[in-house]
Design a protein around this nucleic acid. Structure first.
Lengths: 220, 220
DNA sequence: TCACAAAGGTGAGATTTCTCATAGTATTTT
DNA sequence: AAAATACTATGAGAAATCTCACCTTTGTGA
């Protein structure tokens, strides 16, 4: 379900307005997606530019064999589907709301040409994309160099809500590049160590400090 | 040692000229780096935009603890250090020629402002950066999902010259995210399987088909 | 030329991670 | 409601990978 609310504050708060040299208010609307809703569907033609002002979302990719896997997270503020906008050749990928998401939506049918030739926007987008590539490279390079316990700790902290981790194990194991079986072993180990506690549905974080410590080992 | 040669053909062949809406010939020179030479040094201020027209190069990152690790490869044609150009905040990273590299060098001191406000250039760079981020995301997501044998096969094929693989094991093991010890085990296994043959310095590729088969398993 | 750092190399044992087999429990489809 | 399809779960043994100890060779600067 999508709800229409007014742009108002959101554009300034989130920094969206700073991307353009002209006032995009007339072309911008707000759309809210609840947890679990699709924001962008794979294969769908993109005619609008989405900007995630609040919330977090998941990026999925469909492999040639039809399997769908989680490949990344988006955290506000960021663009969604900006590649599809620039390059119609790009195969689009699905994006789903992980928490409640408030998106600013720019109607390209009405201002696409103006946006695509706006120097300020292009420069800012270059910067944004460059930083994204940079951070991505670094993150991935580091990620594979650390043992699962560290990566899992970071994953739990990133996805937990209100002290509860409740992601699907199938999704997590694919994202972390390990087998389902092994993920359960390590989850059990975290429980035995008192870091997590099993709930009927999900896990309660009992010792957040230790999770943070494990995560931080990767940044050093 | 750097040799100055004339831009000439290189600009058109490599597609460099297509990035600009004006003639950049007057601001462009060619610099050649031999295998192993530094193209960009870490921490060095970047005042020129490099474009790798021919050859391949390695990207290194220095960790907080001082360790330097190989994190990626650049294959022509591509930009080098374009992030540093756009964003002075970005910590620069070192780039070293892996094979002989012919670079086109744009002197930003003389045409930086014109370039930074060239709509064609900005659009093309956005596209370039976006594709890079896209491919990077996909590559990394897939990479960690496959066993070492596949990733190593791809690494050997990518870095081999004239049928000979002669990369440093220390560098390769860091890039592949495994220990030095284990890399040697798998190299030995490849030799035992007749895929590689030990040379005084490096390894001869005896069965390229099989390496390619291992590599291709990852693309499916 | 010596000394020291960095890279190459190997063995043995511990730990991590995978494979496979087997089932119970949702969720969705028919 | 039955069937099909995902997700959850657990055990046992195999394979991959790491740790550590120890040694040799190579390159590099004093």
């Amino acid at each position: 379900m999508k709800r229409q609310i007014s742009p108002g504050e959101l554009m300034k708060e989130s920094g969206f307005a700073d991307y353009f040299s002209f006032d995009v208010t007339p072309y911008t609307s707000v759309t809210v997606f609840e947890e679990g809703e699709d924001i962008l569907r794979e294969g769908q033609k993109v005619t609008r530019l989405y900007y995630l002002a609040k919330g977090s979302a998941k990026l999925f990719m469909t492999h040639k064999n039809g399997r769908v896997t989680l490949i990344n997270f988006y955290e506000a503020p960021c663009f969604l589907g900006e590649m599809e906008l620039l390059d119609p050749e790009t195969p689009s990928r699905g994006v789903r709301a992980h928490t409640r998401c408030e998106c600013l939506v720019l109607d390209l049918a009405r201002c696409g040409e103006r946006v695509r030739s706006d120097g300020l926007f292009l420069r800012a987008l270059c910067l944004y994309l460059g930083r994204k590539a940079f951070v991505g490279t670094r993150t991935y390079a580091q990620r594979q160099a650390y043992p699962l316990e560290n990566r899992l700790a970071a994953y739990i902290l990133m996805t937990a809500r209100d002290g509860v981790y409740a992601e699907k194990h199938t999704e997590a194991s694919e994202y972390l590049g390990i087998t389902y079986r092994h993920l359960l072993y390590v989850m059990a180990k975290f429980c035995k160590q008192g870091i997590l506690r099993r709930l009927p549905r999900g896990y309660a974080i009992e010792n957040e400090e230790q999770l943070i410590a494990l995560q931080d080992e990767m940044q050093a």
